[in-house]
Simulated scan of single mutants.
Amino acid sequence: MCVIETSPVIETRRLTLRAPRPQDASRIARLANDIEIARMTLRMPHPFTQGHAEDFVLQVASQNPARANTFVIEHEDHGPVGVIGMFEDRDPMPETGYWIGREYWGRGYATEALEGALVWASRKWKRRALVAGHFADNPASGRVLEKAGFLYTGETRRGFSSARGGLTDTRRMVWLA
């Protein structure tokens, strides 16, 4: 019998990945209300309000953990610094995505969180592969994915970015456990 963790916690050297809590909403709203973050995602609107953050926390709480897991990325000294998620979508394998608050860019938090999430996904969530994508004009995200072991598939997809209000090219990558 497979037991599904309903609220997993992932520990890395500097970070804890955990379910978002209602008290995280104001911090999430403050960090996510940055056009430079929102424009590098498909779904995140800009401006990103307190109401969006509260809706996000509620939506995550209602996820089916067999199909999706979303975590606040919490730093031991700074508190929440971003979000990472893994979810089943239109691809045959789950997809992962993440964002880090701008004031925390360049510190390796995205890579560390992604590596921790991948270990959890393979050991506890029992996934053997994940896909990801990054916008063609966001090579920094591509480097994070490469450091975590993702490889380019050669596929580029056009997708609608809510914050950009238009289509953008997404370079697709895959990770194999």
Rank of each mutant, 00 (worst) to 15 (best):
M1I: 00
C2T: 13
V3K: 10
E5N: 08
P8T: 01
V9E: 08
I10G: 04
T12R: 09
R14M: 07
R21I: 10
R21H: 15
Q23A: 15
Q23G: 10
Q23V: 13
S26C: 00
A29R: 14
A29E: 09
R30C: 05
N33F: 07
N33C: 04
E36V: 08
I37Q: 14
A38C: 15
A38I: 13
A38G: 10
T41Q: 15
P45T: 05
P47A: 02
P47L: 00
F48I: 07
F48Q: 10
D55L: 02
D55Y: 01
V57G: 05
L58D: 09
Q59G: 07
Q59L: 04
V60T: 01
S62G: 06
A68D: 08
F71N: 11
F71E: 06
H75P: 06
H75Y: 01
V81G: 02
V83L: 12
G85I: 00
M86L: 13
E88D: 01
E88Q: 11
E88C: 08
D89H: 03
P94E: 03
P94W: 02
T96I: 12
T96A: 03
G97C: 12
Y98I: 05
I100D: 07
G101K: 10
G108L: 02
T111W: 09
E112Y: 07
E112W: 03
L114A: 05
V119G: 00
W120Y: 15
S122D: 08
W125M: 00
R127Q: 15
A129T: 12
A129E: 11
V131L: 07
A132F: 02
N138D: 09
P139I: 03
A140Q: 03
S141K: 03
R143P: 06
V144M: 00
E146W: 04
K147S: 10
K147F: 02
K147E: 08
L151Y: 13
L151D: 13
Y152R: 15
G154C: 08
A163S: 13
A163L: 11
G166T: 02
L167K: 06
T168I: 03
D169A: 04
R172E: 06
W175Y: 12
W175K: 05
L176H: 11
A177M: 00
A177G: 13
A177R: 05
